[in-house]
Design a protein around this nucleic acid. Structure first.
Lengths: 335, 335
DNA sequence: TTGTACGCGTTATCAG
DNA sequence: CTGATAACGCGTACAA
């Protein structure tokens, strides 16, 4: 089952076998090549990746740290990245942080041990970060030893970053919604201080402001960043509070759906009484009535870019921002 | 960054350093222990997992092959398995087969190279299998070299299998629905010959039969196994065909939702004109109106059992079946 | 083109 | 309790 087994059966040296099996060098006779290949097939030989990694000092793996896989958004992101990685012949080693910062650090430590070509962090960055310093030095260390670090949608650390335009997407959405006649939106941010989420809130508020509509601070809330969080927050509101609003904008579709569910349970008609809008454009939306207005994030593009950065030469450090696009749908009709 | 660096800085031999870093053996002086630990921290040392795997001849990894991560059901399954694995201190190496059988074989080959403790296949098995023989021998080979193979919900190969009761769940659901007065169900199976899906169809039909209701073959369809598949199939039906039915049962929630969307688009009222039921009880359902009747699959239990089998001693080869549970909801009211 | 020999970072055996 | 030393499976100068 080892390479020497193959070599012995083929009647060649281990080096020759090595050359044909992974063979960057084409400098090997055709006769011995087929000999080796046949032997390998007969023995059902599979190269020991660990040994290869040790010998080479590098693996063909990129490590992906994501917040969750059960969540629709991150699941889609993960899928996109795995696809993009496969396209360039890279394996993906997945780790899930469950949105815990300490766990993130732990994972980086663990993953460093895998000697991956790159580490991609697809979680959302924190605004003020207790353990982030430790995380940053750990990543820096990794980078010093030749690894590459790529962040997705979190510019809180000085590494290669793939960004999509949270602020602008929310801004444009807000402008469109103001144009449709909305005047008193309720904004659902995130209790966890996530940078990209704050950008969405800021962009949204600025967008309405640019249309001459001011959103007072008391209409901006920060529930726990989840379906549940929005759901229970809205359950806590009294009817007057909701009646005063004509729109709920949530920083993610997941949060928006939690809000929508709560409204439904309370018998508030969407979109007749209240419009609802989210962010991300997750697949789940196809099954929701009314069709949810949101901001589309081109995950495939993001993923491809991230993998590209993870592998390309270090000198092209451009930091371009991938545009997002508002998707106006049934949940926010003309007012 | 290597163990010898740590050892040198600590002023001990490499062996001692090795012992304290991973140290199954506690047979090491406290003085040198702290010495090593300090050195390791100072250098930011991370054990090279690949090297460990080579030296030990085994890794702390289990490989998971799943059909998809974008799909809600498999995403939840993947999350559950990662959680269960983490509980017992195992890493999970994830690979996605995209439901392609040849890819599955390819992945097993690749993953074998990682020398994982076990390989878990969480895809759905095929009834008749062209490449399956190759897959089976590849897995058998892996098992011969000390690896463990665990199948989830596919008893098409002679390996350790974690099964949940597809047949029985569908059967009980059918009985309940018959009890609610449904008499002319439309059944959506899977064009791909997936064993567990066929079991659901069989169980459902048998359930109705046991209630004295016969489901003729022309009301059992086999669209492509996806949201899209069901969606376009239903779009092809004429109204009479649909009017003759009082219920649509789909073998998975995903498929059911595709059907539901199609019905909605065609202006057919659910559940007033037509009931809808699925299978899996995916999280997405919380956002769907009307609340979908389905069969609950206890994924956490399944995952825990799978990881257990992947690690437990080989002699406890009991093949218990995890029960599923019908969930009657709004989409199938009393007729 | 091929083979020999050494090194990769660890673990494990076996004397001390 | 500790330290040489031999593996582990593979890649790769270097020499042939």
């Amino acid at each position: 089952m080892t390479l020497s087994d193959v070599a012995r059966l083929a009647g060649v040296s281990q080096s020759t076998a090595s050359r044909v099996i992974n063979g960057s060098a084409k400098r090997v006779d055709n006769r011995s090549r087929t000999l080796v290949l046949d032997a390998a097939r007969e023995l059902g030989y599979t190269p020991n990746l660990a040994a290869q990694a040790v010998a080479r000092g590098a693996s063909r793996t990129i490590a992906l740290i994501t917040s969750s896989v059960a969540d629709a958004y991150f699941a889609a992101m993960t899928a996109a990245i795995m696809r993009a990685a496969e396209e360039v012949g890279l394996r993906v080693s997945l780790a899930v942080s469950d949105r815990r910062l300490d766990r993130e650090l732990e994972l980086v430590r663990e993953l460093r041990g895998q000697q991956p070509r790159a580490i991609i962090l697809a979680g959302t960055g924190y605004l003020d970060a207790p353990a982030d310093r430790a995380l940053e030095t750990e990543l820096a260390r990794y980078q010093e030893t030749g690894g590459r670090v790529v962040l997705i949608s979190r510019s809180d650390m000085p590494f290669e970053t793939v960004d999509f335009d949270n602020y602008d997407g929310a801004h444009r959405l807000a402008v469109e919604l103001a144009g449709r006649g909305y005047r008193t939106p309720l904004v659902l941010g995130s209790a966890a201080p996530l940078r990209s989420m704050q950008e969405r809130v800021d962009g949204f508020i600025a967008g309405f402001a640019s249309a001459g509509v001011d959103i007072p601070a008391e209409r901006v809330h920060h529930p726990e960043f989840s379906w549940q969080g929005a759901h229970s927050l809205l359950h806590g509101f009294d009817r007057d509070e909701l009646a005063a609003a004509d729109l709920v904008f949530a920083i993610s579709d997941d949060v928006a759906l939690g809000a929508l569910a709560s409204l439904r349970e309370r018998g508030i008609a969407v979109p007749q009484e209240l419009g609802v809008a989210g962010f991300d454009d997750i697949t789940t939306l196809r099954d929701v009535v009314p069709k949810l207005t949101t901001v589309h994030v081109p995950l495939d593009e993001v993923a491809r870019e991230a993998v590209h950065r993870a592998t390309a030469s270090p000198n092209e450090l451009r930091r371009n921002v991938i545009p997002t696009r508002p998707m106006l749908r049934e949940s926010t009709p003309q007012r």
